[in-house]
């Protein structure tokens, strides 16, 4: 799978890092993780899940029948776990670099002078 991951893909993997989830649970969790910025629809979610399953990043954990309809639970695979860890580390370094730059800019005499 191409990196850097798109935000919805990253959030789906993050949601599945906790425990196996079904479609509705995943949509709710992604909405919560993104502070309601990203609200996946089922068509979009299952398209993303298909790609992740094809790439062996996500696997079906178990199935159950609710109200006569199939409910599948998905979990993160080993490869998915590794990719999520690598992507998180990459983002952490970026955040760290940006934070350091902003801190240095805020304390530099030139900027302080300009602000004054």
């Amino acid at each position: 799978m191409e990196t850097p991951l798109r935000e919805p893909t990253f959030l789906i993997l993050t949601a599945l890092a906790g425990e196996p989830m079904h479609g509705y649970g995943l949509i709710a969790e992604v909405t919560r993780l993104s502070d309601h910025r990203i609200s996946l629809r089922p068509g979009t979610l299952y398209g993303a899940l298909d790609r992740l399953v094809d790439a062996d990043l996500v696997a079906v954990d178990h199935e159950e029948i609710v109200d006569g309809r199939l409910r599948r639970y998905y979990r993160l695979s080993e490869a998915g776990n590794r990719l999520l860890a690598a992507e998180t580390e990459r983002m952490r370094r970026n955040v760290e670099a940006a934070t350091n730059r902003l801190r240095a800019t805020a304390t530099s005499p030139r900027l302080s002078g300009e602000l004054a």
């Binding site: 479609g23 509705y24 089922p42 068509g43 979610l45 309809r69 199939l70």
Partner: peptide
């Protein structure tokens, strides 16, 4: 393969 599962998610939402 997926119709029932897709339906369940739409109905849940």
């Amino acid at each position: 393969e997926r119709g029932s599962e897709l339906m369940d998610t739409y109905l849940s939402l």
